[in-house]
Design a protein around this nucleic acid. Structure first.
Lengths: 221, 221
DNA sequence: GTTGACAAAATCGTATACGATTTATAGTAT
DNA sequence: ATACTATAAATCGTATACGATTTTGTCAAC
C-alpha cells in the first residue's frame, strides 16, 4: 500500500499473525512439516512478509516452527521422544508448584477445584476432558505465587498439546485420572504437602507410562 | 547494497546479530532498560534493520528484551522477585534431572564431577567460581538423558546470570556450597537417589535464602 | 518409462524507502 | 527561569523491490 494506511493504530502487524499461526498450529489445523509460505500468509492477513517473518521467528523460539536455511519456515514435527521428555519436565514443574501452592491455599481454592472435578466427571467430549483437566491442574497450582513457574508450566502444556492430540485418543479413560485428581485435592484440603505432591507425581508419571505404552503399541502396529 | 552482495552464504544475517546481542546482554555489557537502536545495531553489523528486528524478536521471547509499542526494543530489567522465582524453578528442574540422572551415572561421570570439585576449591576469581559451579551442576545432571530438560535448565541459568551478577558479589563464600557439592556427589556415587535429591534441593534452597537475605539487606541500605 | 539438463516460476532473505509516531529543540508567553 | 507550543530530527514499523536460491516444469536422451 504505497498510498494508504501505513500502520495500525496499536502498532505491530506481527502480533495478530503470531497469534493466528500459534492457534492454527496448536489446534492441529497446520500439521507436521507443512511449509509456511510467507507471501501467502502475508496476503491472507493483508500485510507484507516482514511482520510475518517476525511472527515466525517468535514461534521458532517457542519450538512450534522450524526455519530451514533458504527454505523458509515449517511447522515443527515433534516426536514421541520429545513428548516423554516434556512429561518429565511437567513432573518437575508441577510438583514444585504444588509444594509451594498448598500452604497458600484457602477455602475458595478448594471449592473452585472441586467444581472443576464435578464438571469433569460429567464431561462427554474428548476435547472438554482435556480442557477441564488442564483447568484443574491450573486451579491447584495457581496459589503457588510464582508467576514464571506458572507460565512455564503453561508453555510446556502448550508444547505438548499437539503431540497429545495425535497420541492420546483415549489414553486411559476417565476413571483413573478422575480418582487421582480427587486424591490430590483431598491432600490439599487437609494441607498435607508431601502426600499431595506424591499423588500428583504418581498421577503424571502414570500418564507418562500410559503414553509410553501407547507409543510402544503403535510402533509394533 | 543495491549493487553488491545481496546475501550471506549460510543465509541469515539475523543469526550473528542475535548471538552478539545475546552475549552483550548476558555479559552485562548492555544493562537495564537501555534502548536498542535498530539502525545503529544494523550499521554496526553492516546490515539493514530487518534481520536486526528478527533477532530482537527472538530475544524478546527469551525474556532478554522487551518491545514497547512504537518505542522499539529495550534490554529487559529483571527484578529481585524474578530472581527468586527462577531459583524455585531451578529447584524443580534440577532435582528432577538429578533423580533421573543418578541411576544412569557411571564411574567416569563421578571422576569428571570430582575433577570439577577439585578445581573448584582451588579457584580464585568470582568469575571462575561461577563457571565451575554451573559446570559441576551440569556434570551431575547430564546423564539424565532428557535433552529438553537440560536445555531448559540452561535457559533458566542463562536468564539468572545477569541478575546473579548484580546481586551476588559473594553470596556465601566458598565453604558452604563446596561442602554441599561434595555431599551431593557422595550420594550419587553410592546411588542413593533420595539423599542426592534432598541434598541438591537443600543446596539450591539455601542459595535462595542467601540471595533473599541479601535482597532484604539491600532494601534497608 | 526413467533420467538428466536446462529454463521458468516460486520463494526466500534482506536492502531500501517512506508514512507514522515519538523525542528533541527552539521559540514564545507567563 | 518555567511552562507551553510549534517545528525539526530521530526512530519506529512495514510495504516494496530485487538478487539469490530452491523448486517445478519441459523436453530430449537413453
Amino acid at each position: 500500500m504505497r498510498n494508504g494506511v501505513y500502520l495500525m493504530k496499536g502498532s505491530s502487524a506481527s502480533e495478530p499473525v503470531y497469534l493466528a499461526l500459534r492457534i492454527a498450529i496448536l489446534s492441529g489445523e497446520l500439521v507436521g512439516d507443512e511449509p509456511l509460505r510467507q507471501d501467502e500468509i502475508a496476503k491472507q492477513h493483508g500485510i507484507s512478509k516482514i511482520p510475518v517473518r517476525e511472527a515466525l521467528r517468535r514461534l521458532e523460539v517457542e519450538g512450534l516452527v522450524e526455519f530451514k536455511p533458504r527454505r523458509g519456515a515449517f511447522v515443527r514435527t515433534v516426536n514421541d521422544e520429545e513428548l516423554l521428555d516434556l512429561l518429565d519436565i511437567r513432573v518437575a514443574l508441577e510438583t514444585r508448584a504444588l509444594e509451594l501452592s498448598i500452604p497458600n491455599m484457602v477455602q475458595s481454592d478448594f471449592t473452585a477445584a472441586q467444581a472443576i472435578l464435578s464438571a469433569y466427571v460429567k464431561s462427554s467430549s474428548q476435547e472438554e476432558w482435556g480442557y477441564l483437566n488442564q483447568k484443574f491442574h491450573r486451579s491447584i497450582l495457581e496459589p503457588c505465587g510464582n508467576k514464571r513457574l506458572l507460565s512455564l508450566i503453561d508453555d510446556i502444556n502448550t508444547r505438548m498439546s499437539p503431540l497429545l492430540r495425535m497420541r492420546v485418543t483415549s489414553v486411559s479413560g476417565i476413571e483413573r485420572p478422575s480418582h487421582e485428581h480427587a486424591e490430590i485435592l483431598e491432600a490439599c484440603v487437609v494441607g498435607n504437602v508431601s502426600r499431595g505432591v506424591a499423588s500428583l507425581r504418581k498421577h503424571i508419571e502414570e500418564s507418562k507410562r500410559e503414553v509410553a505404552a501407547q507409543i510402544r503399541r503403535d510402533a509394533i502396529a
